[in-house]
Structure formats: C-alpha cells, structure tokens
Nucleic acid binder design. Structure first.
Lengths: 241, 241
DNA sequence: CGTGGAGTTGAGTTTGGTCAATATGCGTGG
DNA sequence: CCACGCATATTGACCAAACTCAACTCCACG
C-alpha cells in the first residue's frame, strides 16, 4: 500500500521532496469501502479529497431519463476528487466500482499546504489537468470510434495506467467490474459490450470475463484502437523499483 | 474588448484585486486570427497561453482514419490553453472556428506570477477544473443522449456561457460556425446535424442557420436537453454592469 | 455569370438498441 | 451439502437511430 503512496508522490512533477513529505503527512489512514458504495454524492459539498489506494472508482453522472454515464475512472494512485477543492458542489457522484481503499486529505489542510508550497500546488493542478486530457481522449473515442474499438482503447489505456502503478505486467491486469459498468463507461448498452467483447475475443486480441484481463495482441489492439499513449505520458513515470 | 478582460478577471474567484491587476499587466495586445487557422498545433510545445477576446476556438483531436472531434469549445473571456502551462506537449490542436482575437501571456510570466501569488494560481487552477466539468457534461451528452437532444444541450450551454460574458441576451446570440463544425462537436455527421436542426426547428424550439441563433422556447429546450446549468455555475458571475 | 463551399433532402445500409429467453455462478439458508 | 434466488452474462430476433452516398439547392465571391 505504501509503495503506491510513494508512486503517487513521485509523479508530482516539479514538487520538492520537502513538498512530498509535507503532503504525505496530511494523508490519513486508508479506509475500506465495499463495491457499489457511493463515496461522494452528487450535490454534496465535500470537505476533503481522496487518494485511491486500491480498487476502481467511477465518476458517475446520471440523466433523469434512463442514462448513467461513467465520465471518468480512477485507478490506484490517483487523486480521486482533487477538483472538489475548487468546485464547492459536486456535479457528479463518485462510486466504488469494486471494493476500494481510500485515504483522505482535508481541504483545510490542502488549502494551507498549497498556499505555503506553490510548487506542490502546481503539481496538484497538473494532476487535474492530466485528468482533463484523459477526458478529452474519452470524448474523442465516444464521438468517433465504433464500440469495439472504443472498448479496445479503454483496455489499452487501463493497461498503461495500471502498469505505471505496478498493478499490471505481461499484458495482464485485474479488472473486477461488471459489463454493465463497462457499458456506462463506453456509452453503450451492456448487451453491446458483451457482443463487442465477443468480437475482440474471437479476433484473439484479449480475454476478460469480469475479473483478470489478458491482452493477447498488444500491437494489433493498439492499432485497432488507434491508441497513442501521449495523452497519458504525464502519468507514465514507471513505478520505482 | 476591455469589458471582456474585466469579466474574465472578475470571475477568478478568490484572487485579490492586486492579483488581478498583476495578471492583467501580463496580458499582451489582442491579435486577430482568421477563421480556419490553427492557433496551436498538436504536438507543439507552446511557450505561452491565450485569452480569447472574440470569436470561437475549438479544441480539435484527429483520428488517423476519418475522425475529427472537437473536444471543447472556448468562448470569449475563456483562457484557451492554460493547461499547456502544465502539460508540455499539446495532445490536440486549437483551431479558430471563426475569426478570433486572442491575447497572449507567456508561460514564463505565468509561472512567476503563480509562484508569487498562490491565490491567483488557485483561481487559474479553478478555471481549468471548470473546463473539466464542461468536458464531463459533453461526455455525458455524447454517451447517453440522442443527437437532437445533444444539439439542444449544446445550444443551452452556449447561451448560458455567452450570456455570462455579455454576448447573449433575449435568447439570442451569434454562432457563425458551420454545421460541419457542429457535427465534430457532437460526434455525429454533418448530414445528421442538419436533420436534427430541422427537427428542433419544426418543433419551434430554435432557429439557427450558421449565424444568429434564436432560442424560441427556452423552457422546453432545457427540458428536452435535460440541461441543468450547475456544472457551469462557476462561470455564471453575471457581467459587471 | 460561374464556381466552390455549405446546406438540404432522399434512399438504402449499418451500427447499436430493445426485448426477451436462457445460462452461469455465487452466496444464503435449510 | 444442496436448493433456491439473485445478479450477471450470453444469445437471438427484431427495431430504430444514425451513417453513407448522392443529387440538388443556395449563396457568396471573384
């Protein structure tokens, strides 16, 4: 668990070591939350931000009539809702898609440390900007790619992000979410996720049945998905040791 | 033009007046760029950020095969590429969708002023976080709304954003972009934009033919689009005087 | 005038959605 | 240990939204 904290801190680019230590000192103990639980409710006004230590958290937006969209996914090592420091009211919910462990940092502390340490603030700002880059990529995929390619793209992205925090290797990683959740991430129906998966499976590109995922043909998969990790590079500092 | 600068500065929440003046001092003269021009090229490493004073700028991502997606739209008063201060390499292009006027601020200056004035940095950070909120809303629309509703939603958003900077009133505003650009914003084809527009027009909801836009039935339109401006509220400080 | 870009419309196709039945797998209580 | 029940996954048949292709119109501009 503490490896992860180290990785998270390490990729705060431009921060001094003193900054990192000071931030680390503000981070609370990890708290376990079980799958399906809402971590932060839409409309609420959080007084703290969270660092994800294990599991997957989804950024969930709801439409009155029949729509649920996961507009972002956090993997271990991510700050989950740094932006709530700046935007009082949550315009979406944060949901534990799997069992998760989160550590918290109070906004009061964050505000103080940011004021005292501009380089750290800048690094945290940068984290939220990278989230934005990922978001843009999702939007591009959502707007201009077919369902199967979008799915392939998401697998590529997840692999790269998880590898960067030591949670994926040899084209394998664990993704214990439902096809329904995947559907909400991709903007398609669960039924169609299933069919798209079948297509990719038949092409021998990957294997995933709600738990361990294996990418068989990385090269082909990235080509199909037109996946270019530049938009992630900011998070690509390889895990220390 | 300088009204606009004043509005932009005013909505930098939490900044002191001294901060605003100091920032204003760094902003260069407006430069006119004509429609269609690329302001910042994908892959480049900008040394400055831009403030949009007039016209519309699109954040354009390209897919190798047949895909162009506008993943964000800036209206006058927006900082166009603040995030390039933090992410060296552009992962998308910035394109003038109409004739525009932009003022620039050098990254060197920005970095210095941010270090000296944490509250200003925080306010600028907040601006990029609001961009993220808009992005999430687009993703929600892209993923879970039908084309016509998505189009309606975009009109609602634009009206609210433009009204906030004094460029829309009485449910009217000017939007001199092509249907093709609208298509790339919505993730649909130009032909389908045309048909969706026809639908909305027939329902008497709005009028737009590539120039002035008029929303006839705001209430109905917002309902159709399930438009709730909370995600924009951070930018809703009404124009001074 | 006439040329090219943008908008409009129709006809036919494709992708993904809907509805519904069946399968699978797991945790609980008997 | 088994049976039941629920949630998730899988598949088929049919439907609807959006795409493709192509023709035609409408301007603005030279």
């Amino acid at each position: 668990m503490h490896d992860l904290l180290a990785i998270t801190l390490k990729r705060l680019e431009g921060a001094a070591d003193g900054d990192r230590d000071a931030l680390a000192a503000l981070i609370g103990e990890g708290r376990a939350v079980s799958a399906g639980r809402v971590l932060v409710e839409e409309g609420s006004r959080p007084q703290l931000s969270m660092l994800l230590l294990s599991g997957f958290v989804g950024r969930v937006s709801i439409l009155n009539e029949g729509g649920r969209q996961i507009s972002g996914l956090n993997v271990p090592g991510d700050f989950v809702d740094l932006h709530s420091l700046l935007l009082k009211k949550m315009d979406h919910s944060l949901v534990a898609l799997t069992d998760v462990v989160v550590a918290t940092i109070s906004h009061v502390d964050l505000r103080l440390i940011c004021e005292a340490r501009p380089q750290l603030m800048r690094a945290l700002w940068r984290e939220t900007v990278i989230d934005g880059a990922i978001n843009r990529e999702w939007l591009l995929a959502q707007g201009r790619m077919a369902a199967a390619e979008r799915l392939a793209h998401r697998f590529c992205e997840l692999y790269v992000r998880l590898e960067a925090v030591g949670l994926a290797a040899d084209y394998r990683f664990d993704l214990p979410i439902t096809q329904s959740d995947a559907a909400d991430m991709l903007g398609i129906t669960p039924v169609h996720v299933n069919r798209s998966l079948k297509t990719l499976r038949k092409q021998g590109l990957l294997e995933w049945r709600g738990g361990p995922a294996v990418i068989h043909e990385w090269r082909t998969l990235t080509q199909l998905a037109q996946f270019d990790p530049i938009y992630l590079q900011a998070r690509l500092i390889t895990p220390g040791a």
